[in-house]
Design a protein around this nucleic acid. Structure first.
Length: 180
DNA sequence: ACGAGGATGCTCT
DNA sequence: GAGCATCCTCGTC
């Protein structure tokens, strides 16, 4: 049992537990790590806003994997966005990683992003800063190339708001933001 | 500070 | 052929 077991529960609770964790990649010796400060929970067949709403397809199949499976999809034909499946396996529930602040490898992120600021304050930016793309889809955040690491400090303060950029199920306050 | 619009590609209807 | 779980630039106020 590790901290990752907190993923395998209700997706809303899993989303809260991921806030404050760290996300780390290490490709070709280039290390990047962020503190996760913004996430959103997505359900399965009970959540009209979720990619998993209509059941498994070629694209969303990683959402239905075991807890800790990374689901990477292309957004608006331009960006990559990363989610962590929470399980139970087969339900399609997942947490979208929407934002974070750099902890390590800031210069690498700046190079990947092509700018000096706003490095990971959005789902597309986060993936780009960490170098996450389609080849990481289906890998495990427990022991894969894109890795989730436990919180360093105590349980953070969390604010819940409606999710961003969706047309359906807007009433659910399933976006969670870390506040100091 | 804020809003409009375009880029761009893939999935599903 | 429509519709995106977005981001950036440029125009106005």
């Amino acid at each position: 049992m590790s901290f990752v077991s907190t993923l395998d529960g209700h997706v809303e609770k899993a989303a809260r537990s991921i806030l404050g964790m760290r996300l780390r990649t290490e490709f070709q010796g280039r290390v990047t790590e962020i503190l996760l400060t913004e996430v959103e929970a997505y359900g399965g067949s009970d959540d009209a806003a979720s990619h998993a709403y209509r059941g498994p397809t070629e694209r969303n199949r990683s959402m239905f994997g075991p807890p800790g499976t990374l689901y990477v999809y292309r957004s608006y034909g331009v960006h990559w966005c990363a989610n962590v499946a929470t399980g139970p396996e087969g339900t399609g529930r997942a947490v979208l990683l929407r934002g974070g602040v750099p902890l390590e490898g800031k210069a690498v992120m700046q190079k990947r992003r092509g700018r000096l600021d706003q490095l990971a304050d959005g789902p597309g930016k986060l993936a780009q800063a960490l170098g996450i793309d389609a080849i990481h889809d289906g890998t495990s955040v427990i022991d894969g190339p894109v890795r989730l690491l436990p919180r360093l400090g105590e349980v953070p303060s969390i604010v819940a708001t409606p999710r961003i950029g969706i047309a359906k199920a807007k009433e659910r306050a399933w976006r969670f933001v870390l506040v100091r």
